[in-house]
Structure formats: C-alpha cells, structure tokens
Simulated scan of single mutants.
Amino acid sequence: MMTVRVLIVDDSATMRSLIAATLRQDPEIEVLGFANDPLEAREAIKKLNPDVITLDVEMPRMNGLEFLEKIMRLRPTPVVMVSTLTQAGADTTLAALELGAVDCVGKPSGGATAAEAFADLAQKVKSAARSNVRPFAGPVKPHEGHADYKANDCILAIGSSTGGVEALMTILSAFPRNCPPTVITQHMPAAFTKSFAARLDRVSDAHVEEASDGARLAPGRVYLAPGGETHLEVASKTAPMCRLKHSDTVNGHRPSVDVLFESVAALGRPAVGVILTGMGRDGAKGLLAMRQGGARTLGQDEASCVVYGMPKAALEIGAVETQAPLPRLAAAMLNLCAATEPQRSV
C-alpha cells in the first residue's frame, strides 16, 4: 500500500486542523507537516519533499498563484487547491488549475460541515499523487483555428474531469467560429462553471457559455454543464437543445458525463463523443452507447492526461475508437465531425 505524504499550506490554523483531521482518517495518507504561507511552504517542501501539497488560494507574504507558478516551473508537484466558494475564489482557483494544479476543493460554507465540504478531499489527494504533473508551459492563448472547417449538423459531446481545465482550454482555443454544436460536462463545483465558461469563451473563436435549459444547439455554440444541481442532456432529434435535469448523482457525479453521452446516443443523430483526462469511470458506458449507435469516438491518450482514468476505462470496454494526444485532439474532433454523414430529412 502506497502512503501519500501531504504538506498542508493555509494561513488559518483552524483550516489546517480541519484538513489534517480529514486526511488522517485515510490510512493511505500521511500528513507530513504544515505551512502558514508560501515562504514557510518553500522551506517545508525542500525539507519534507511531499507527494502532494494542499494549497490555500489566499495567503499572506506571497500571492498563492505566484507561489504555485514557481512550484510548477521549478519543482513540479501535485497540488490540490483549497478555495472559498465565492466568485473571487472561483476565479483564482480556475487560474490555479490553468497553472497546473491538479484539482480543487471548496472550503466549508453556507452551513456545510467540514465532513461535507471535504468528503472527497482524500480521494482527490490520492488521485493527485498518481497524476502526470508537468512543468508550467505558459498560459493558453487563442491561436488560429481551423478556418477551413465546414459546419454540418454533427453534435460534438465532450466529457472531462481532473485535468480538464487545461485540456478544454487547449482544445477550445483552436476551435473555429463555426465549430460543431458542442456540449461539455466537466466535473466541477457549482461555483466555478460560469467563470470557467467565461474563461473558455475568451480563448476561443467560438461562443462558449454555461448551459441553460432550452438553449438551442447550433454551429459556433459551445455549452458547458452547470455544476452541482443538474445533469446536462441533449433533447429533441429534430431541433437539439440543452436540457438540465434534476436527478440523483450518477457515478458519484452531478453533472455526469454518462448522462450527457447517453442522451446524445439516444437521439440517433450524427455525433462525435470525446472523453478526456479524469479520475474514475464516468463517461465510459455512455461513450460505448454512442459508438454502438454509430457515433465516432475519441479518447485522450495516457501520456497527455493528468489522470488517465476515464479514457482508460472507456478504452477497456471498447468505447474509444482511437486515442490522440491533447495537442492533436481539436483537429481530430473537427475532422471526425466534418466526415460524418449529414442528417437526412424523412
């Protein structure tokens, strides 16, 4: 049994104690020590060489993002961000995920207990320890998309989880203005998805927004599932639109990638399904349903995944037609969409 050694960095003694108490309940995790701010953390990292760092986003003496960038440039280490679930906290956490943080968890708020807020913290820390952390290569910038893409009525459905912020930023930055009608489920807290959609919109020639119930799918439109309360589905074969469905979690998630993929498979329309980096198996079953229904399917390859869980699970059950590295995925998606047979009227 591998023991994951963790350094907790937070300027609140109370929060440090809550995080430590949560992590110590897992026999596979050892809390190595604590740091009050990035300067203390720098010395602790040198001395303790932790497997994973939990990092507060707002700390004294050095900006948390500045410290994270230094970690990722000089000594890449898996980092799980611990954020306040406010608009400012969401924006900062998303910036941290772009810099290379593996995952994030919200601090207790709105009457939630530490046990509720940190219910999946231990699992995220263990997953981070197994993640593929790479040196920070600079912020994602919009670049010339595939100007020769010819739009048709093919629906593009994408699912992602841990590492998905980097992957989706990279992919959508290469999307053309007339990209396929696109729906995305990314596992993310409710407080973050609207901000994330806005960040994606800024780097893409396509229009990206948080999905709303009844929003029509059309070329050049990308819809990101809201976090927390609903699943995103695609409804109506003749005039596809977003449907937000209030129901139980699926595979421990709401929104669930399986729910999105299965709804697209049920339409019987030309479609492409893509499963990206993430922990667990969510999306594998739904992607298989899409492939069995005639859709083309893609998976992110292991080398470019932060966590090769979801793509691996989908590949193992025959849901993935082919794999591609992250830098080539946008072109691969667009090529498959362009090659699909147009919908014939009946």
Rank of each mutant, 00 (worst) to 15 (best):
M1Y: 11
M2E: 15
M2C: 08
M2F: 10
D10R: 02
T14M: 15
M15I: 15
S17Y: 02
S17F: 08
L18V: 11
L18Q: 08
A20K: 13
A20N: 10
P27H: 07
P27G: 01
E28F: 09
E28P: 01
V31P: 01
V31I: 15
L32C: 05
L32T: 05
G33T: 09
N36Q: 13
D37Q: 10
P38N: 08
A41Y: 01
A44F: 03
A44P: 01
A44I: 02
I45Q: 04
L48M: 14
L48V: 09
D51R: 04
T54A: 11
D56W: 02
V57K: 02
V57Y: 00
F67P: 00
F67M: 04
L68A: 03
M72W: 03
V79D: 00
V80H: 02
S83N: 11
A88G: 10
G89F: 03
A90D: 04
D91G: 04
T92I: 13
T93L: 08
T93D: 06
L94M: 12
L97S: 02
L97R: 01
V102Q: 00
C104G: 01
C104K: 00
V105C: 10
P108A: 07
G111F: 07
E116Q: 12
A117T: 02
L121C: 06
Q123P: 00
V125M: 07
R130N: 12
S131N: 07
N132G: 08
N132I: 06
V133E: 01
R134G: 03
P135T: 10
P135K: 09
A137Q: 14
P139M: 09
P139N: 09
V140I: 13
P142G: 09
A147Q: 12
D148C: 06
Y149W: 07
K150G: 03
D153S: 10
C154H: 00
E166L: 11
E166F: 12
E166R: 09
L168E: 06
T170H: 12
L172Y: 04
L172R: 00
S173Y: 06
F175I: 05
F175M: 12
P176N: 07
R177T: 12
C179Y: 00
P180K: 05
V183D: 01
I184Y: 04
Q186F: 07
M188I: 08
T193I: 10
T193C: 10
A197S: 09
R199S: 11
V208E: 02
E209Q: 11
S212W: 08
A218P: 02
P226Q: 10
L232K: 05
V234F: 04
A235T: 12
A235C: 14
A239Y: 10
P240F: 05
P240Q: 09
L244A: 07
V250A: 04
V250W: 02
H253N: 13
L260M: 14
A265Q: 03
A266F: 13
L267T: 12
L267H: 07
L267I: 13
I275M: 08
L276A: 02
G278I: 01
K285Q: 13
A289V: 06
R291D: 11
Q292Y: 10
Q292L: 13
Q300M: 05
Q300S: 07
D301S: 11
G318D: 13
G318T: 06
E321S: 14
T322K: 15
Q323I: 11
A324L: 13
L326M: 13
P327C: 11
P327R: 15
L329C: 06
E341G: 09
P342F: 06
P342W: 09
R344D: 15
